[in-house]
Structures are given as C-alpha cells and as structure tokens.
C-alpha cells in the first residue's frame, strides 16, 4: 500500500528534481557568462566613448543622471557623455553625445537608427555630422528654421537632419541642467 503511494508520486518527484538540477546548472552558467558579458560591455562602452574623446582611459557612470564622466590616464576629468534618443524620419534613433564643457558639444555618434537607407546615406556621405564638433549647445539648431542656428541640413533628408539636431539639443539641454 505504502509502496503504491510512493510509485504514484515518483514521476512528479523526478520531474521536480530534474527542474531543480536544471535551474541550478543554469544559475551557475549564468553567473560565469554574465561576468564575461559585463566585461565586454564595459570595453565596448569605453571604445565608443573613445570615439568622441580619444584620450578616455576610464569612465564613471552615474546611474541617477545617466551621465558618463570621462577621465584620461592621469585621472583628470576630460568631459561628459550621455545618450539621447528620439525620432527622425522613422523611430527610433539613439545618439551618444559628448560634452567638452557644460556649454560645448565635443562630438556625437549615432549608435542606432532606422532611417531610410537612401536618405541616411546622404547624411553619412556629407559633412553633416562634422558640424556638431565644437558646437555650442545653443547653436544646435537647423539654419533653415532659425537664423541663429549653425547646423546646415541636407536637402532631401531634412527630416532625418531635424531628428538628429532635435535629439542632440534636447538631451544636451537636459543633461546640462543636471551638470550645473
């Protein structure tokens, strides 16, 4: 009688045991690979930031403000960087923006976008992105819409240009307030 009862719960117990062993194995594997993934992500972020500030040796990321503070090899602060995102012709465009000081953009790098390739290539193959180097935040406006603006748009890809300018300006103004 007692043996019959055990026989009935045996399959369920075996399944439960298999799940427990499986989960334990996955937790161990996850722990090992997570460290590798985080280390690689750190390296990728550093390389990305070095694309804006070549002298970056290491960085500190403030999780509250979501601002990277960059340092050179002699541990001096050389600038700040942060992500901005928004819409161009298509959603969603993500740009990393570097600030040399609290008023001047050092450079920008578009890390992801879904713009129509033909229009986007017009931006990439022109000097559009060079205009953001050493640009004052207040001047980050398309000339077409404001005489004080310092950024020339690309004819035929105006909406994509406007998207980039708006994302950079909005993010820079927001983060500038946090830095002040």
């Amino acid at each position: 009688m007692k043996f019959d009862h055990l026989k009935k719960i045996y399959p369920t117990a075996l399944l439960t045991l298999a799940i427990i062993i499986s989960v334990s194995l996955l937790v161990i594997s996850g722990g090992i690979t997570q460290a590798v993934l985080e280390s690689r992500q750190d390296q990728e972020t550093l390389e990305l930031l070095q694309g804006i500030f070549p002298k970056t040796a290491f960085y500190y990321f403030d999780t509250d403000t979501e601002i990277y503070t960059l340092y050179n090899s002699s541990r001096s602060e050389i600038g700040h960087a942060f992500y901005g995102e928004g819409i161009g012709f298509n959603p969603r465009m993500v740009i990393i923006i570097g600030l040399e000081d609290k008023e001047t953009i050092k450079d920008i790098i578009v890390t992801s976008q879904r713009e129509t390739r033909w229009y986007w290539n017009r931006l990439v193959n022109s000097d559009f992105f060079d205009q953001f180097k050493e640009l004052r935040i207040e001047d980050c406006v398309l000339k077409r819409y404001n005489n004080d603006g310092k950024v020339d748009g690309i004819t035929g890809a105006t909406i994509s240009c406007m998207g980039v300018v708006n994302i950079v300006r909005k993010a820079a103004l927001e983060k500038m307030e946090l830095l002040n």
């Binding site: 499986s22 996955l26 594997s29 996850g30 690979t33 590798v36 993934l37």
Partner: peptide
Amino acid sequence: TFVTVANMLFQA
C-alpha cells in the same frame, strides 16, 4: 538546459 547553456556560452 544544455541548449540554454550553449546559448549563454555563445553569447559570452
């Protein structure tokens, strides 16, 4: 379980 382990190893 082994597929997930392989997946994690490949990703890392």
